[in-house]
Design a protein around this nucleic acid. Structure first.
Lengths: 207, 207
DNA sequence: CCCGAAATGAACTGAACCGTCTATAATTCC
DNA sequence: GGAATTATAGACGGTTCAGTTCATTTCGGG
């Protein structure tokens, strides 16, 4: 009946263990994290931990999978498909940028990149729960706006990706490389406004 | 006379050790790499390795520093500042994109991201030897082109970053997350052409 | 050809850590 | 209230690994 994998047992303290795993893995990475630390952070004995998860790798994958899923749900913004681009794009851009600049998102990104070749599945999951979702939402909206004659786009996939990239501008690089970790409203507004302006200069149609 | 730090000794097999360190660190990451592996890959005894570098951390930093420096030199493309944007931008875009899609660049990026908080200096070095260089070259060119009346830009810093981001579009994400690792000329051309078109639609001035 | 410096390799230390196990305590269920 | 399941703490075995030591070999310069 339960859809859980045969390898991972569910139980009372299941979530508790995952919470501890998230804390330590996101802080120390896969190799850097010790199972003892995780058990301690989870407020659980190591024996209990191993009664749920057969080994460290599977615990890591389960944690990462859950985190990606959470990200997917959280970043699922409700675009009002009926509004014109000059209303929608700033909203989407700002939401997107704030999301990828958030501490949790950035930590998950870091660990996915770091462990992408130790856990090939992981990169794919992150991509699907992040960039791909945004891409899907955007192409959907762009098509509708185009049908209303508000945009003139040939390559929807490219346009959607371009908008996402424009929103990152260099704030995101600064975050990833630890140059800065906090950004003001002004900085965010500058980048998002710039992204919208540039995007619409290319694809916009005067009403 | 020698500018080397007091902590790192130079000598005959210095570069040999660094070469081995690069091979193993880039393959396995910092935690994943074993010093024995590095010594073996370098064709050097562990005692010799430790006679040059006091510990693993410093060896890693030295390797990363050198690699960033190499990247900086390699990515230093000679822009012909006198040519108009519709000539220069496709060239720069293509060079930039091929560079960040290259295997070495991508490996160095991965390790810098993964170890950015274990080695705070490292992130900064990578930023300066990559994004910041590109940014500097671009703003320089954009200014000159604007003086010639070929572009109309208010925020040079933002425009330069936007162009770089546009060139990544989604190819780079696919690479980082392991969705794809090789890209055809067509894919690259599509993204670069798109970047130039979008950029010029916003900032271009009809001659 | 020879001497001193540099390199070697192999063994060794001490510590971290994964995964297991056991004896004990708590909790649930009948 | 007692039996069965589940959790706990801690120790332990086996392994890996960073860094050290040392006796021996290699090598370059005089």
């Amino acid at each position: 009946m339960p859809a859980s994998a045969a390898t991972v047992r569910r139980g009372r303290k299941f979530d508790q263990v995952l919470a501890g795993a998230r804390e330590i893995f996101l802080r120390d990475g896969f190799e850097g994290a010790s199972v003892d630390d995780i058990a301690r952070a989870a407020g659980v004995s190591k024996a209990t931990l191993y009664s749920y998860f057969p080994d460290k790798r599977l615990l890591f994958m389960e944690m990462a999978r859950k985190q990606c899923k959470l990200q997917a749900d959280e970043s699922l913004m409700a675009i009002d498909m009926t509004q014109p681009p000059h209303i929608v794009l700033p909203l989407v851009g700002r939401t997107f940028l704030c999301f990828i600049l958030s501490d949790m998102s950035h930590r998950v990104f870091r660990i996915c990149v770091a462990e992408a070749d130790r856990f090939p599945e992981l990169g794919k999951q992150f991509y699907q729960s992040g960039p791909m979702l945004m891409h899907g939402e955007m192409t959907g909206y762009l098509r509708e706006a185009m049908e209303r004659g508000e945009l003139a786009i040939e390559d929807f996939d490219l346009a959607a990706d371009q908008f996402a990239e424009l929103c990152k501008a260099d704030l995101w690089s600064k975050l990833v490389f630890g140059i800065k970790s906090r950004f003001s409203e002004q900085e965010i507004a500058r980048v998002v406004d710039g992204a919208v302006t540039t995007f619409l200069a290319c694809y916009g149609r005067k009403p």
